[in-house]
Design a binder for these strands. Structure first.
Length: 426
DNA sequence: AACCCCATCAACCGCTTAAAG
DNA sequence: GCTTTAAGCGGTTGATGGGGT
Protein backbone atom coordinates (compact mmCIF):
# COMPACT_ATOMS: atom_id res chain seq x y z
CA UNK A 1 0.00 0.00 0.00
CA UNK A 2 1.12 3.45 -0.74
CA UNK A 3 2.44 5.68 1.93
CA UNK A 4 1.71 9.35 2.11
CA UNK A 5 4.37 10.92 0.03
CA UNK A 6 4.33 13.92 2.33
CA UNK A 7 5.28 11.72 5.24
CA UNK A 8 8.63 11.07 3.67
CA UNK A 9 9.47 14.69 3.17
CA UNK A 10 11.95 16.16 5.53
CA UNK A 11 11.77 19.30 7.57
CA UNK A 12 8.15 18.83 8.38
CA UNK A 13 7.09 20.04 11.75
CA UNK A 14 5.73 17.57 14.23
CA UNK A 15 4.18 17.88 17.61
CA UNK A 16 1.78 20.41 18.94
CA UNK A 17 0.31 23.02 16.68
CA UNK A 18 1.01 26.66 17.33
CA UNK A 19 -1.77 29.25 17.17
CA UNK A 20 -0.10 30.65 14.06
CA UNK A 21 -0.30 27.31 12.35
CA UNK A 22 -3.90 26.94 13.38
CA UNK A 23 -4.68 30.31 11.94
CA UNK A 24 -2.95 29.52 8.69
CA UNK A 25 -4.88 26.32 8.34
CA UNK A 26 -8.18 27.95 9.23
CA UNK A 27 -7.53 30.80 6.84
CA UNK A 28 -6.71 28.44 4.04
CA UNK A 29 -9.67 26.16 4.53
CA UNK A 30 -11.95 29.12 5.01
CA UNK A 31 -10.95 30.51 1.68
CA UNK A 32 -10.42 27.45 -0.42
CA UNK A 33 -11.67 24.42 1.41
CA UNK A 34 -9.29 21.60 1.99
CA UNK A 35 -9.56 20.02 -1.43
CA UNK A 36 -6.74 17.54 -1.54
CA UNK A 37 -5.25 17.35 1.91
CA UNK A 38 -1.78 16.62 0.64
CA UNK A 39 -1.72 19.99 -1.08
CA UNK A 40 -3.06 21.91 1.89
CA UNK A 41 0.24 22.39 3.76
CA UNK A 42 1.94 23.80 0.73
CA UNK A 43 -0.92 26.09 -0.20
CA UNK A 44 -1.44 27.17 3.39
CA UNK A 45 2.25 27.73 3.99
CA UNK A 46 2.56 25.09 6.65
CA UNK A 47 5.50 22.84 7.36
CA UNK A 48 3.20 19.99 8.12
CA UNK A 49 2.18 16.80 6.47
CA UNK A 50 -1.25 16.83 4.87
CA UNK A 51 -2.36 14.08 7.10
CA UNK A 52 -1.43 16.14 10.10
CA UNK A 53 -3.41 19.08 8.73
CA UNK A 54 -6.42 16.90 8.16
CA UNK A 55 -6.26 15.52 11.66
CA UNK A 56 -5.82 18.94 13.18
CA UNK A 57 -8.82 20.20 11.29
CA UNK A 58 -11.04 17.24 11.97
CA UNK A 59 -10.17 16.85 15.62
CA UNK A 60 -9.68 20.39 16.71
CA UNK A 61 -10.33 23.23 14.31
CA UNK A 62 -13.53 22.16 12.63
CA UNK A 63 -16.17 24.70 13.61
CA UNK A 64 -18.94 22.22 14.23
CA UNK A 65 -17.09 20.57 17.05
CA UNK A 66 -18.58 20.64 20.47
CA UNK A 67 -15.86 21.17 23.00
CA UNK A 68 -16.10 20.62 26.68
CA UNK A 69 -16.84 17.76 28.95
CA UNK A 70 -19.12 14.97 27.92
CA UNK A 71 -22.56 14.92 29.42
CA UNK A 72 -23.83 11.89 31.25
CA UNK A 73 -26.21 11.25 28.37
CA UNK A 74 -23.37 11.30 25.92
CA UNK A 75 -21.35 8.93 28.04
CA UNK A 76 -24.23 6.53 28.36
CA UNK A 77 -24.85 6.70 24.66
CA UNK A 78 -21.20 5.95 24.00
CA UNK A 79 -21.36 2.96 26.29
CA UNK A 80 -24.46 1.63 24.62
CA UNK A 81 -23.11 2.20 21.15
CA UNK A 82 -19.88 0.56 22.15
CA UNK A 83 -21.80 -2.46 23.29
CA UNK A 84 -23.13 -2.82 19.77
CA UNK A 85 -20.36 -1.41 17.62
CA UNK A 86 -17.28 -2.22 19.64
CA UNK A 87 -14.26 -0.02 19.00
CA UNK A 88 -15.68 1.53 15.86
CA UNK A 89 -15.05 4.98 17.16
CA UNK A 90 -15.91 6.78 13.98
CA UNK A 91 -19.32 5.17 13.88
CA UNK A 92 -19.90 5.95 17.51
CA UNK A 93 -18.82 9.51 16.87
CA UNK A 94 -21.29 9.71 14.01
CA UNK A 95 -24.06 9.35 16.55
CA UNK A 96 -22.71 12.17 18.68
CA UNK A 97 -22.78 15.41 16.74
CA UNK A 98 -19.84 17.61 17.44
CA UNK A 99 -17.71 14.87 18.91
CA UNK A 100 -14.75 13.29 17.19
CA UNK A 101 -13.76 9.69 17.18
CA UNK A 102 -10.48 10.65 18.79
CA UNK A 103 -12.23 12.45 21.57
CA UNK A 104 -14.57 9.54 22.21
CA UNK A 105 -11.75 7.06 22.06
CA UNK A 106 -9.78 9.07 24.59
CA UNK A 107 -12.77 9.37 26.85
CA UNK A 108 -13.36 5.67 26.63
CA UNK A 109 -9.80 4.75 27.44
CA UNK A 110 -9.28 7.31 30.14
CA UNK A 111 -12.58 7.47 31.91
CA UNK A 112 -15.43 5.24 30.84
CA UNK A 113 -13.48 2.02 30.99
CA UNK A 114 -12.57 2.77 34.54
CA UNK A 115 -16.07 3.70 35.53
CA UNK A 116 -17.45 0.52 34.06
CA UNK A 117 -14.95 -1.60 35.91
CA UNK A 118 -15.78 0.21 39.13
CA UNK A 119 -19.39 -0.69 38.53
CA UNK A 120 -18.51 -4.29 37.96
CA UNK A 121 -18.89 -4.28 34.20
CA UNK A 122 -16.26 -5.52 31.85
CA UNK A 123 -15.72 -2.71 29.33
CA UNK A 124 -14.75 -5.08 26.56
CA UNK A 125 -17.63 -7.47 26.76
CA UNK A 126 -20.12 -5.28 28.61
CA UNK A 127 -20.82 -8.23 30.82
CA UNK A 128 -20.65 -8.28 34.58
CA UNK A 129 -17.09 -8.78 35.66
CA UNK A 130 -18.01 -11.74 37.82
CA UNK A 131 -19.39 -13.52 34.80
CA UNK A 132 -16.31 -12.72 32.78
CA UNK A 133 -14.10 -13.99 35.56
CA UNK A 134 -16.13 -17.17 35.78
CA UNK A 135 -15.77 -17.61 32.07
CA UNK A 136 -12.07 -17.04 32.33
CA UNK A 137 -11.86 -19.69 35.01
CA UNK A 138 -13.97 -22.04 32.92
CA UNK A 139 -11.76 -21.35 29.95
CA UNK A 140 -8.65 -21.98 31.99
CA UNK A 141 -10.17 -25.18 33.27
CA UNK A 142 -11.07 -26.21 29.76
CA UNK A 143 -7.58 -25.46 28.58
CA UNK A 144 -5.97 -27.48 31.33
CA UNK A 145 -8.45 -30.28 30.72
CA UNK A 146 -7.63 -30.02 27.06
CA UNK A 147 -3.93 -30.31 27.81
CA UNK A 148 -4.49 -33.28 30.04
CA UNK A 149 -6.65 -34.98 27.46
CA UNK A 150 -4.16 -34.21 24.76
CA UNK A 151 -1.42 -35.66 26.84
CA UNK A 152 -3.51 -38.71 27.48
CA UNK A 153 -4.43 -38.96 23.83
CA UNK A 154 -0.84 -38.51 22.84
CA UNK A 155 0.16 -41.24 25.21
CA UNK A 156 -2.55 -43.49 23.89
CA UNK A 157 -1.57 -42.63 20.36
CA UNK A 158 2.01 -43.48 21.06
CA UNK A 159 1.03 -46.79 22.51
CA UNK A 160 -1.13 -47.49 19.50
CA UNK A 161 1.21 -45.96 17.01
CA UNK A 162 1.16 -49.00 14.86
CA UNK A 163 -2.57 -48.93 14.62
CA UNK A 164 -4.38 -47.36 11.72
CA UNK A 165 -5.19 -43.68 11.76
CA UNK A 166 -5.92 -42.42 15.21
CA UNK A 167 -9.47 -42.20 16.37
CA UNK A 168 -8.69 -38.68 17.39
CA UNK A 169 -8.35 -37.82 13.75
CA UNK A 170 -11.98 -38.62 13.24
CA UNK A 171 -13.31 -37.67 16.61
CA UNK A 172 -11.38 -34.76 17.93
CA UNK A 173 -11.41 -34.81 21.65
CA UNK A 174 -11.96 -31.19 22.20
CA UNK A 175 -13.29 -28.28 20.33
CA UNK A 176 -10.02 -26.42 20.31
CA UNK A 177 -8.30 -29.17 18.43
CA UNK A 178 -10.29 -28.26 15.39
CA UNK A 179 -8.95 -25.85 12.88
CA UNK A 180 -9.42 -22.26 13.96
CA UNK A 181 -12.77 -20.83 13.12
CA UNK A 182 -12.86 -18.40 10.25
CA UNK A 183 -12.97 -14.77 11.18
CA UNK A 184 -16.41 -13.44 11.90
CA UNK A 185 -18.25 -12.26 8.87
CA UNK A 186 -20.76 -9.49 8.66
CA UNK A 187 -23.49 -12.11 8.77
CA UNK A 188 -21.91 -13.44 11.88
CA UNK A 189 -21.96 -10.02 13.40
CA UNK A 190 -25.54 -9.46 12.42
CA UNK A 191 -26.60 -12.83 13.66
CA UNK A 192 -24.87 -12.36 16.94
CA UNK A 193 -26.31 -8.94 17.32
CA UNK A 194 -29.80 -10.21 16.76
CA UNK A 195 -29.42 -13.35 18.79
CA UNK A 196 -27.81 -11.55 21.65
CA UNK A 197 -30.56 -9.05 21.50
CA UNK A 198 -33.09 -11.83 21.77
CA UNK A 199 -31.27 -14.02 24.20
CA UNK A 200 -30.53 -11.31 26.66
CA UNK A 201 -34.11 -11.23 27.76
CA UNK A 202 -35.19 -14.61 26.65
CA UNK A 203 -33.54 -16.60 29.40
CA UNK A 204 -30.91 -17.99 27.12
CA UNK A 205 -27.36 -17.57 28.05
CA UNK A 206 -25.85 -14.83 25.97
CA UNK A 207 -23.09 -15.50 23.59
CA UNK A 208 -19.84 -14.98 25.26
CA UNK A 209 -17.64 -14.36 22.30
CA UNK A 210 -19.41 -11.33 21.03
CA UNK A 211 -18.51 -8.13 22.70
CA UNK A 212 -21.81 -6.45 22.15
CA UNK A 213 -24.06 -8.93 23.70
CA UNK A 214 -25.41 -6.74 26.41
CA UNK A 215 -28.68 -5.79 24.91
CA UNK A 216 -30.46 -2.53 24.91
CA UNK A 217 -33.16 -4.06 27.00
CA UNK A 218 -30.67 -4.84 29.66
CA UNK A 219 -29.21 -1.46 29.42
CA UNK A 220 -32.35 0.45 29.17
CA UNK A 221 -35.33 -1.22 30.56
CA UNK A 222 -36.94 0.76 33.25
CA UNK A 223 -39.94 -0.83 34.86
CA UNK A 224 -41.20 2.53 35.90
CA UNK A 225 -41.49 3.97 32.46
CA UNK A 226 -44.64 2.23 31.53
CA UNK A 227 -42.99 1.07 28.37
CA UNK A 228 -42.85 -2.52 27.50
CA UNK A 229 -39.38 -3.81 27.04
CA UNK A 230 -40.40 -7.34 26.44
CA UNK A 231 -38.37 -8.78 23.63
CA UNK A 232 -41.46 -9.80 21.77
CA UNK A 233 -42.93 -6.40 21.98
CA UNK A 234 -42.67 -4.81 18.62
CA UNK A 235 -42.21 -1.17 18.30
CA UNK A 236 -44.82 -1.07 15.59
CA UNK A 237 -47.21 -3.83 16.39
CA UNK A 238 -49.55 -3.02 13.57
CA UNK A 239 -46.96 -1.91 11.18
CA UNK A 240 -46.28 -3.42 7.85
CA UNK A 241 -43.88 -0.70 7.01
CA UNK A 242 -40.55 -1.68 5.74
CA UNK A 243 -39.34 1.79 5.02
CA UNK A 244 -37.58 3.43 7.89
CA UNK A 245 -39.22 6.76 7.30
CA UNK A 246 -42.66 5.20 7.47
CA UNK A 247 -41.72 3.35 10.56
CA UNK A 248 -40.43 6.47 12.17
CA UNK A 249 -43.58 8.30 11.25
CA UNK A 250 -45.56 5.58 12.86
CA UNK A 251 -43.20 5.59 15.76
CA UNK A 252 -43.57 9.28 16.24
CA UNK A 253 -47.31 9.18 16.20
CA UNK A 254 -47.32 6.22 18.50
CA UNK A 255 -44.88 7.88 20.85
CA UNK A 256 -46.87 11.04 20.74
CA UNK A 257 -50.03 9.33 21.76
CA UNK A 258 -48.40 7.20 24.37
CA UNK A 259 -46.24 9.41 26.45
CA UNK A 260 -44.57 12.14 24.55
CA UNK A 261 -46.26 15.47 24.14
CA UNK A 262 -44.84 16.08 20.73
CA UNK A 263 -42.04 14.90 18.57
CA UNK A 264 -41.06 16.52 15.34
CA UNK A 265 -41.33 14.01 12.57
CA UNK A 266 -39.17 15.14 9.68
CA UNK A 267 -36.60 12.64 8.60
CA UNK A 268 -34.29 15.37 7.51
CA UNK A 269 -32.88 17.67 10.06
CA UNK A 270 -33.72 21.31 9.78
CA UNK A 271 -31.21 23.33 7.90
CA UNK A 272 -31.09 27.05 8.26
CA UNK A 273 -29.66 28.92 5.35
CA UNK A 274 -27.56 31.87 6.19
CA UNK A 275 -27.12 34.92 4.05
CA UNK A 276 -24.63 34.40 1.24
CA UNK A 277 -22.61 37.29 2.49
CA UNK A 278 -22.01 35.53 5.76
CA UNK A 279 -18.40 34.69 6.14
CA UNK A 280 -16.37 32.81 8.62
CA UNK A 281 -14.67 34.95 11.16
CA UNK A 282 -11.38 33.34 12.00
CA UNK A 283 -11.33 35.10 15.33
CA UNK A 284 -14.69 33.66 16.05
CA UNK A 285 -13.33 30.24 15.34
CA UNK A 286 -10.42 30.88 17.59
CA UNK A 287 -12.68 32.17 20.30
CA UNK A 288 -14.74 29.11 19.89
CA UNK A 289 -11.62 27.08 19.83
CA UNK A 290 -10.63 28.53 23.13
CA UNK A 291 -13.87 27.65 24.75
CA UNK A 292 -16.32 30.16 23.44
CA UNK A 293 -19.16 29.06 21.30
CA UNK A 294 -18.59 29.39 17.63
CA UNK A 295 -20.84 31.91 16.04
CA UNK A 296 -21.27 34.00 19.10
CA UNK A 297 -19.55 36.91 17.49
CA UNK A 298 -19.13 35.99 13.92
CA UNK A 299 -21.52 34.22 11.65
CA UNK A 300 -24.77 35.22 13.23
CA UNK A 301 -25.93 31.71 13.77
CA UNK A 302 -27.43 31.77 17.18
CA UNK A 303 -26.67 32.87 20.64
CA UNK A 304 -23.60 31.43 22.19
CA UNK A 305 -25.30 29.49 24.88
CA UNK A 306 -27.13 26.98 22.77
CA UNK A 307 -24.95 24.68 20.81
CA UNK A 308 -27.52 22.00 20.28
CA UNK A 309 -27.14 19.44 17.60
CA UNK A 310 -29.50 21.46 15.49
CA UNK A 311 -27.21 24.39 15.74
CA UNK A 312 -24.30 22.24 14.83
CA UNK A 313 -26.14 21.17 11.79
CA UNK A 314 -26.81 24.75 11.03
CA UNK A 315 -23.23 25.73 11.19
CA UNK A 316 -22.45 22.82 8.98
CA UNK A 317 -25.06 24.00 6.57
CA UNK A 318 -23.52 27.38 6.73
CA UNK A 319 -20.20 26.12 5.57
CA UNK A 320 -21.72 23.99 2.93
CA UNK A 321 -24.05 26.61 1.61
CA UNK A 322 -21.46 29.28 1.80
CA UNK A 323 -19.42 27.41 -0.73
CA UNK A 324 -16.28 27.82 1.27
CA UNK A 325 -15.88 24.28 2.42
CA UNK A 326 -15.66 20.98 0.80
CA UNK A 327 -16.22 19.12 3.96
CA UNK A 328 -19.61 17.90 4.90
CA UNK A 329 -21.23 17.73 8.29
CA UNK A 330 -20.85 14.64 10.29
CA UNK A 331 -23.46 12.02 9.64
CA UNK A 332 -24.17 13.30 6.18
CA UNK A 333 -21.36 11.57 4.42
CA UNK A 334 -21.27 7.89 5.02
CA UNK A 335 -18.74 5.64 3.49
CA UNK A 336 -19.62 2.39 1.89
CA UNK A 337 -17.45 0.79 4.47
CA UNK A 338 -19.84 1.97 7.05
CA UNK A 339 -22.54 0.08 5.31
CA UNK A 340 -20.50 -3.05 5.58
CA UNK A 341 -20.52 -3.00 9.29
CA UNK A 342 -23.98 -1.70 9.62
CA UNK A 343 -25.95 -4.31 11.45
CA UNK A 344 -28.67 -4.28 8.85
CA UNK A 345 -26.78 -3.92 5.66
CA UNK A 346 -28.51 -5.81 2.93
CA UNK A 347 -31.09 -6.94 5.37
CA UNK A 348 -34.57 -6.71 4.00
CA UNK A 349 -36.25 -8.68 6.66
CA UNK A 350 -38.77 -6.50 8.41
CA UNK A 351 -38.31 -8.40 11.58
CA UNK A 352 -34.68 -7.50 11.82
CA UNK A 353 -35.48 -3.95 11.00
CA UNK A 354 -38.00 -3.97 13.69
CA UNK A 355 -35.51 -5.44 16.09
CA UNK A 356 -32.91 -2.92 15.21
CA UNK A 357 -35.31 -0.09 15.55
CA UNK A 358 -36.50 -1.59 18.74
CA UNK A 359 -32.96 -1.46 19.96
CA UNK A 360 -32.74 2.10 18.83
CA UNK A 361 -36.04 2.78 20.43
CA UNK A 362 -34.83 1.47 23.71
CA UNK A 363 -31.62 3.32 23.28
CA UNK A 364 -33.61 6.45 22.90
CA UNK A 365 -35.75 5.46 25.78
CA UNK A 366 -32.64 5.24 27.84
CA UNK A 367 -31.70 8.73 26.88
CA UNK A 368 -35.12 9.88 27.76
CA UNK A 369 -35.17 8.10 31.03
CA UNK A 370 -31.72 8.97 32.13
CA UNK A 371 -32.94 12.15 33.64
CA UNK A 372 -35.38 10.23 35.76
CA UNK A 373 -33.61 7.03 36.53
CA UNK A 374 -30.17 5.51 36.62
CA UNK A 375 -29.44 2.71 34.28
CA UNK A 376 -26.94 0.10 35.25
CA UNK A 377 -24.09 2.14 33.90
CA UNK A 378 -24.99 5.33 35.62
CA UNK A 379 -23.36 6.57 38.69
CA UNK A 380 -25.67 7.86 41.33
CA UNK A 381 -25.11 11.53 40.92
CA UNK A 382 -28.21 13.32 42.04
CA UNK A 383 -26.43 16.60 41.79
CA UNK A 384 -25.03 15.89 38.40
CA UNK A 385 -25.20 18.81 36.10
CA UNK A 386 -24.49 18.40 32.48
CA UNK A 387 -22.27 20.95 31.01
CA UNK A 388 -22.87 20.21 27.37
CA UNK A 389 -25.62 22.18 25.80
CA UNK A 390 -28.19 20.54 23.69
CA UNK A 391 -28.03 17.27 25.45
CA UNK A 392 -27.91 18.70 28.84
CA UNK A 393 -29.86 20.52 31.40
CA UNK A 394 -29.16 21.96 34.74
CA UNK A 395 -32.67 21.44 35.86
CA UNK A 396 -33.40 19.30 38.86
CA UNK A 397 -34.43 15.83 38.02
CA UNK A 398 -38.06 16.43 38.80
CA UNK A 399 -38.10 19.24 36.32
CA UNK A 400 -36.21 17.25 33.78
CA UNK A 401 -38.95 14.71 33.90
CA UNK A 402 -41.34 17.41 32.98
CA UNK A 403 -39.46 18.11 29.78
CA UNK A 404 -39.72 14.93 27.82
CA UNK A 405 -39.89 16.64 24.48
CA UNK A 406 -36.26 17.68 24.66
CA UNK A 407 -35.18 14.18 25.39
CA UNK A 408 -37.53 13.00 22.73
CA UNK A 409 -35.90 15.31 20.23
CA UNK A 410 -32.54 13.87 21.08
CA UNK A 411 -33.89 10.42 20.74
CA UNK A 412 -35.65 11.21 17.51
CA UNK A 413 -32.40 12.54 16.14
CA UNK A 414 -30.69 9.30 16.99
CA UNK A 415 -33.43 7.29 15.46
CA UNK A 416 -33.45 9.39 12.37
CA UNK A 417 -29.75 9.01 11.94
CA UNK A 418 -30.00 5.30 12.22
CA UNK A 419 -32.88 5.27 9.80
CA UNK A 420 -31.11 7.55 7.36
CA UNK A 421 -28.10 5.34 7.52
CA UNK A 422 -30.19 2.33 6.78
CA UNK A 423 -32.07 4.02 3.99
CA UNK A 424 -28.83 4.88 2.35
CA UNK A 425 -27.86 1.28 1.97
CA UNK A 426 -31.17 -0.42 1.60
C1' DA B 1 10.81 23.00 46.38
C1' DA B 2 11.59 18.73 44.19
C1' DC B 3 10.18 14.56 42.77
C1' DC B 4 7.02 11.06 41.39
C1' DC B 5 2.79 9.23 39.76
C1' DC B 6 -1.14 9.40 37.16
C1' DA B 7 -4.76 11.16 34.02
C1' DT B 8 -5.75 13.49 29.99
C1' DC B 9 -5.62 14.42 25.28
C1' DA B 10 -3.40 16.00 20.98
C1' DA B 11 -0.84 13.98 17.68
C1' DC B 12 1.46 10.32 15.39
C1' DC B 13 1.91 5.73 13.26
C1' DG B 14 0.62 1.99 10.67
C1' DC B 15 -2.79 -0.23 8.45
C1' DT B 16 -6.93 -0.80 5.35
C1' DT B 17 -9.91 0.72 1.86
C1' DA B 18 -11.40 3.19 -2.12
C1' DA B 19 -10.56 5.70 -6.11
C1' DA B 20 -7.87 7.16 -9.92
C1' DG B 21 -4.63 6.35 -13.52
C1' DG C 1 -6.09 -6.18 -13.31
C1' DC C 2 -2.32 -3.78 -11.29
C1' DT C 3 -0.16 0.19 -9.11
C1' DT C 4 -0.29 4.45 -6.92
C1' DT C 5 -2.39 7.90 -4.23
C1' DA C 6 -5.43 9.76 -0.87
C1' DA C 7 -8.50 9.30 2.86
C1' DG C 8 -10.03 7.23 6.88
C1' DC C 9 -9.63 4.52 10.96
C1' DG C 10 -8.00 2.61 15.34
C1' DG C 11 -4.06 1.80 18.36
C1' DT C 12 -0.42 3.93 20.59
C1' DT C 13 2.70 7.48 22.14
C1' DG C 14 4.30 11.41 24.42
C1' DA C 15 3.74 16.08 26.27
C1' DT C 16 1.55 18.34 29.80
C1' DG C 17 -0.47 19.44 34.07
C1' DG C 18 -2.39 18.36 38.53
C1' DG C 19 -2.12 16.11 42.85
C1' DG C 20 0.29 13.66 46.38
C1' DT C 21 4.39 12.76 49.13
Amino acid sequence: MGRHSCCYKQKLRKGLWSPEEDEKLINHITKFGHGCWSSVPKLAGLQRCGKSCRLRWINYLRPDLKRGTFSQQEENLIIELHAVLGNRWSQIAAQLPGRTDNEIKNLWNSSIKKKLRQRGIDPNTHKPLSEVQNEDKALAAAVSKNSAERAAASEAENSNSKASSSAADHYPLVESSRPPAPPPTHEFFLERFVSSHESSTGGCRPNSDFPGYLSFQQLSYRPDTGLSAHPNTTLFPNSNSSRPSDMISEFNSSMTTSFLPSIPSPILKPSISLPPSTSLDVNAVHNWNNGSTFGSNGGGSSNGSSSSSTELQNSASFFENGGCFSWAPMNCVKSKKEAEVHPLEGETDDNKWSEYLQASFLLGTTIQNQAAAQDIYSETKPEAQFSTDGLSTNLPRSQQQQQPSEAADIYTNHLQRLAATYEQFS
